[in-house]
Amino acid sequence: MSTDMTSVPATAPLAAAREVTPAPTSPSPRGGAGWARRVAVWLTCGVFAVIFVYPLVWLVSASLKPRQDVFNNKLIPDPFAFGNYAKVLEELPFLQWTLNSVVVGMAAAIAVTLSSALVAFGFAYFQFRGKNALFALVLGSMMLPSAATLIPTYLIWNYLGLASTQVPLWAGNLFGSAFYIFLLRQFFRGLPREIFDAARVDGSGFFGLFWRIALPMSKPALAITFILEFQASWVDLLKPLVYLRDESLFTLPRGLKSVLDQFGQGGQREWEVVMAANVLVVLPMFLLFAVAGKYIMQGISVSGSKE
């Protein structure tokens, strides 16, 4: 449905889903000037790299320091306080929260991938009257601020008796999501028509075309969809704040917020615990990025240049 207001990362790009080709650039260095330029570029890259990475290094370092040293801004903790992590795992239901995040993220990602693929195939394969207008509506719905639907959506789940469960965190995904519909439609349109025609001749039904031909041929696009949505679900704070009351149902972002309130500025000022908890929330996303960064960056890179 509407885009997720909490994902500031420029949210999901609107337009095309063409894969990004590497830039045919870097003019060949011409003598000494080219050399100097290259060094300048590398130095600038280095400075920015430090700006982007050092906060995370600081975080990991702070999470390993004893309480009185957390804010000393030294790179290497002295002594190392691995106990901070033990405390997080002992005093907080952190493993439960991680499990909740995994379950909700999987449900959200599977639901949105299958439903969006279904709808995208409808748009890609069939010709019918009003198709373009309807697809324009899909694209238009992407611009809708989720704040405009937040309250009635809550009341719907409340009416269904599910307002304090994890169901609202993923069940909306069963109806497809505009950006992924767009992305998958682009992919399906690139599949050769003859394969589908041949399958029709062999007696395949329309669902068979989708399930046995289109889906197996679209694994990269499905992977992008799945991973982007898993990530979006993992980092979401707003929906868990709205819906989850019971601490045992918390996802990691909601859990981290309550750790901050309990151990940080709201309470005992045990910042080393907060920092260790923070690392444990960030780490799974970095692992995902290490494994599937290619897909994540491809999904984001789809540029906004084609209407």
Binding site: A49, L56, P253
Partner: peptide, 22 residues
């Protein structure tokens, strides 16, 4: 460099908030 620039985007907003508070 691309990976480095992108790491903060992968960081959950709630974690970014906690980190920058410090």
């Amino acid at each position: 460099f691309r990976t480095v620039i992108y790491l903060p985007v992968v960081t959950p907003p709630v974690a970014t908030g906690v980190l920058f508070l410090q």
